[in-house]
């Protein structure tokens, strides 16, 4: 049974690509288009990893990270934020909210897998 990853991105392209890559590596992938939908999708089931974009409508990635960290069920679930920001401000914002790590876009399948392995084995 593969590990379960929730991929959150408002861009379908990104979701598709992340999902495709992870599924190819044997992960089970849930998808959501924004933070609120992600919370909906989670319900209360546990996942092994959450990968979330930062810029999204309704609830952005930072909001999602905060919301997850406030929930004891997800306080120790690794969360990766996807960022294209060159400066560290977004990474830090993500970190302060409680994110485990980050993936710098553009999307690179090998890199994604490497980082995913890094935080959830």
């Amino acid at each position: 049974m593969g590990k379960k990853v929730l991929a959150v991105d408002d861009s379908k392209t990104m979701r598709d690509m992340v999902s495709f890559t992870l599924k190819g590596a044997g992960y089970e992938v849930l998808e959501a288009a924004d933070g609120l939908l992600a919370l909906d999708a989670l319900g209360n089931q546990s996942v092994d990893l959450v990968i979330t974009d930062i810029n999204m409508p309704n609830m952005d990635g930072i909001g999602l990270v905060k919301a997850l960290r406030q929930n004891p069920a997800y306080s120790s679930t690794p969360i990766l934020v996807l960022t294209t920001e060159s400066d560290d401000s977004k990474k830090n914002e993500g970190r302060e909210a409680g994110a485990t790590g980050w993936i710098v876009k553009p999307f690179e399948p090998e890199k994604l897998l490497k980082v995913v392995q890094k935080v959830c084995g």
Binding site: S11, T13, T84, P106, F107
Partner: peptide
């Protein structure tokens, strides 16, 4: 932002 992300990919 989304356009950029895909463009990068």
């Amino acid at each position: 932002h989304s356009i950029k992300a895909g463009a990068g990919a």
